[in-house]
């Protein structure tokens, strides 16, 4: 079981969360080139090791979090709010 340290709710079981994928992906401007959109929509680094990713505490405070997790060991090094204005955000 992965325990995610939600900054609002404390240590919670990962089954309370929904996974949101790679948090380093930033969508470009709507009028950006097709290549920029292709990069954002389809290409992933998919690292074996440290991964920055979104988790949605859907069964808790409903915050979106940015979590640093190792994809090989599942060790979590940090969990922060995804949005600005809520304390220590990512």
């Amino acid at each position: 079981m992965i325990i995610i340290p939600c900054p609002f709710c404390g240590d919670r079981d990962h089954s309370e969360f929904s996974y949101g994928g790679d948090a380093t992906v930033k969508y470009p401007a709507l009028d950006a080139s097709a290549e920029d959109w292709y990069n954002a929509v389809y290409l992933r680094k998919n690292p074996r090791g440290a991964h920055t990713e979104y988790w949605h505490h859907v069964g808790g405070c409903r915050s979106w979090l940015v979590v640093e997790r190792d994809t090989l060991t599942h060790e979590i090094s940090s969990a922060k709010y995804a949005h600005d204005g809520y304390g220590d955000s990512a």
Binding site: G21, D22, N39, Y42, L43, R44, K45, N46, P47, T71
Partner: peptide
């Protein structure tokens, strides 16, 4: 992803 990154292809349409 891990092996192809060694060959210089860092990003692929794949998640593990």
């Amino acid at each position: 992803g891990h092996v192809m990154a060694m060959a210089g292809i860092e990003r692929l349409p794949i998640e593990t």
